[in-house]
Design a protein around this nucleic acid. Structure first.
Lengths: 205, 205
DNA sequence: ATGCAATGTCACCGCATGGTGATATGGTGT
DNA sequence: ACACCATATCACCATGCGGTGACATTGCAT
């Protein structure tokens, strides 16, 4: 038995993610996490105060949500595009980033059912990130030559489309088909991407 | 104490819905449902075999999912429209019908996290309903004069858009704002509907 | 009215959960 | 070497869960 507070804390935080990944949200609890960390559960209360606080620590530690620079590593490239192409590209990247994060998806699904430390924390990160992204996109737009797309409600349009891709990413975890689209195959997702292209392109013509 | 099998079964089935509505999915269990029905939980096992089967009975009893004739009570009106208007209208109706069903939304959210009697049954109903709807829409289209919209991937487009509205309906239960859209106000939803109009109209021009 | 199956009640089991107090053991400064 | 405090362990509690067997009551056919 080695005694090292920091290491134990880290083990606990890591264990939350592992349990979440292994057995899903329903298995995430004091006993399971402590067992997984190979540590007594009482340490959760000693070091984090409560289980919720531990969850919160985990939510802050991992990169749950696609960061701005993950979505837009190349602002100068984007700024050379028209609004439609730019929005399309970012939506695609957003979807891809999301699908790469099984833990985020698990918590996002959770978020639709319960409000707890996890979901509230993710919510905060997401809101901040969304605002940042919108601001960024607006800045890019204002640098672009003004065109016929100015009076379009991009906020609402991206809301519907990003919500759609999020929902499909969530469903894909459990169910393979939605409305005839095969969510378990890349072909299905390409089909969806093409739809987004078509939809957004149509708006600007 | 009155003895009436049928009445007791009905009480149990009804209680599932009440518990689900009151405390959400996490409270749905043998004990809570039996208590709510004012009946001993052993009767669940006697009459339904298992708790899952009771849930299944409930899922089948309620009108969980918008029926075809709820979405399209007026096929002759729709058949007089162009494809774009028709798809738009049905999508709007679909959204409205969904938002009126808090229990369905609860189970749909549940569905993204767990597969159980409830969610699997709803899944079946939904699949059947979706197929029926798609077939119906296709029939309507074939009655319409052929136009430039023929080669469009309507399946994928309606998938994205309906998925988006579903996700937003789910989120609206817990969180009031998404990407700047106020999901707790009718104005927000009208904004979303207008986006759908714009998007679909754009595709066909 | 009587007998008996159908219906409903109750008490209990094993198990897992979140949470806590007393206790043992390791690391560290003197 | 010792003492001491932070660190970690263990045993335990109350509670709620799904599930089951033994028992009481009702209603109905004879």
């Amino acid at each position: 038995m080695v005694k090292n507070k920091q290491a134990t804390q880290d083990k606990l935080i890591k264990a939350v993610g592992e349990v979440l990944a292994d057995v899903g949200f329903s298995g995430v609890g004091v006993n399971a996490v402590a067992k997984r960390a190979g540590v007594d559960k009482v340490l959760i209360y000693r070091y984090f105060g409560s289980f919720d606080k531990l969850c919160l620590a985990f939510a802050q530690s991992a990169d749950f949500w696609p960061s701005l620079k993950e979505l837009i590593p190349d602002p100068e490239v984007l700024s050379a595009m028209g609004t439609a192409e730019r929005v399309t590209l970012v939506l695609k990247r957003f979807t891809t980033s999301l699908r790469k994060r099984p833990l985020t998806l698990e918590v996002m699904a959770w978020e639709l059912l319960e409000r707890n430390a996890f979901t509230i924390e993710l919510e905060n990160v997401r809101e901040a990130s969304g605002l940042e992204l919108n601001r960024f996109m607006q800045d890019l737009s204002s640098n672009t030559t003004r065109d016929s797309t100015d009076e379009i409600d991009w906020l609402a349009i991206t809301a519907v489309l990003s919500a759609g891709m999020q929902y499909l990413a969530l469903r894909a975890r459990k169910i393979n088909v939605y409305n005839g689209i095969e969510l378990n195959k890349d072909e299905g997702w390409m089909q969806l991407e093409r739809s987004i292209e078509t939809l957004i392109a149509g708006v600007t013509t």
